[in-house]
């Protein structure tokens, strides 16, 4: 398995293959929305997404520049995602609509599942491949490598994997794209990319 590219986004900035490509303006409280405007992509649905889906969407926009997804048929890319806090940030927002503001919000309720972000990536790219979302205590490279092996042996030609987390202390997105080619993906390598080293 060959790692083609990775993208990390957190409060400090955007890193493509560990290289800082843009620093976030930390005075902006809505740095995620700022990144969207900087991208010049027109996708009105972006504003309806929860932060998990927004981060995954933005991560993909950056990663897309370094990979060639047109090499693949619409069902050859599998999505393997995980995080620690599920959809907690949005869950709390949704709860607030019926405990404090009046009625439960249908548009927040539909984002109270972490795998909605893989649905958004599938819709954006018209991808019909396999998807799975795990809840893990922390980013676990060994686990991803194991899952990637499973999906390659099941027939996937490429994998978009990701760790997308949103909680009250931290918001981050780490995406990486792997092709079924000669190459070695190690735990150390993934850990370094995740930590922008």
């Amino acid at each position: 398995m060959k790692l083609i590219a990775s993208c990390k986004i957190n409060k400090t900035g955007v890193y493509l293959n560990s290289q800082l490509i843009s620093r976030n303006d930390l005075s902006e409280s809505n740095w995620i929305t700022e990144l969207y405007y900087d991208s010049n992509k027109e996708y009105p649905k972006f504003h309806k997404m929860d932060n998990l889906a927004k981060l995954a969407f933005l991560g993909f926009l950056f990663l897309e520049k370094k990979i060639n997804i047109n090499n693949y048929k619409d069902d050859e890319i599998s999505l393997i995602f995980s995080n620690a806090s599920s959809s907690k940030t949005n869950d709390l927002k949704y709860i607030n609509t019926y405990t404090n503001k009046g009625n439960p919000s249908p548009s927040l309720f539909v984002y109270t599942l972490p795998n909605i972000l893989t649905g958004e990536l599938a819709i954006l790219n018209k991808w019909y491949g396999e998807n799975i979302f795990f809840i893990q205590q922390k980013f676990d490279p060994k686990f991803y490598i194991e899952q990637i092996k499973f999906y390659f042996s099941k027939g996937a030609k490429a994998i978009l994997a990701g760790w997308v987390e949103s909680n009250d202390k931290n918001e981050e997105c780490f995406l990486f794209f792997i092709e079924k080619k000669e190459g070695k993906l190690t735990i150390e390598k993934l850990n370094k990319l995740y930590q922008n080293e």
Binding site: K101, N103, P106, V110
Partner: peptide, 13 residues
Amino acid sequence: SIDALEFIVLLES
């Protein structure tokens, strides 16, 4: 369709 449901919430609130 989800936006239509938000309209219903808006009318009520």
